[in-house]
């Protein structure tokens, strides 16, 4: 089971190390982690995707809450939240197949952000499934490099996490 946690933390020296250290020391698995500051510059938001059953999720949440620098932990159930990831994919391309690639990019509402004689770089945002899908369609052309952010997420509607 995967869970997405929104963790609001004090934007302080060492806070990322504290959170990462907690996960490794207690044997929790992180699938992805994204960090950035929020509307309040003294607060950072970590979006952490963890793998585990309900017992693991409960322990992760409680142990995170024990960290002094952690302000709030919210479990973002998938129905109540909007989630996005961003990927940059550099794919082999030449005059013969560029059009085909552009077509795929259009279908996914992705964008081409760099073009060279032998490659194009595609930017795509979406949930994990969408990124997986475009990745598999581009694969036959030869993916040279790929960079992917962790997932970021917010609750739906006017409620905040």
């Amino acid at each position: 089971m995967k869970h997405t946690l929104a963790v609001l933390v004090d934007n302080k020296y060492g806070v990322l190390a504290r959170v990462a250290g907690l996960f490794s020391r207690r044997g929790f698995n992180i699938d992805s982690l994204a960090v950035g500051i929020t509307e309040d510059p003294t607060i950072s938001r970590m979006t952490i995707v963890v793998r585990g059953d309900d017992h693991v999720l409960e322990q992760v949440t409680k142990q995170l809450n024990k960290l002094i620098d952690v302000i709030r932990v919210t479990d973002l159930g998938s129905d109540e939240s909007v989630e996005r990831e961003l990927a940059l994919i550099k794919v082999n391309a030449d005059a013969n197949n560029r059009a085909e690639i552009i077509q795929i990019v259009d279908i996914f509402r992705a964008r081409i952000i760099d073009v060279a004689s032998k490659s194009v770089t595609v930017e795509v945002t979406g949930d994990s499934n969408k990124i997986k899908a475009i990745q598999s369609l581009l694969k036959p052309f030869g993916i040279k490099e790929m960079a992917r952010t962790g997932k970021v997420a917010l609750t739906r509607g006017s409620k905040s996490s």
């Binding site: 020296y13 060492g14 190390a17 504290r18 250290g21 907690l22 020391r25 960290l67 002094i68």
Partner: peptide
């Protein structure tokens, strides 16, 4: 020492 003691303190500080 703040790195070393992170997992064995309730909290720690490096005064900056």
């Amino acid at each position: 020492i703040t790195g070393i003691t992170m997992p064995i303190t309730k909290h720690n500080y490096l005064v900056q």
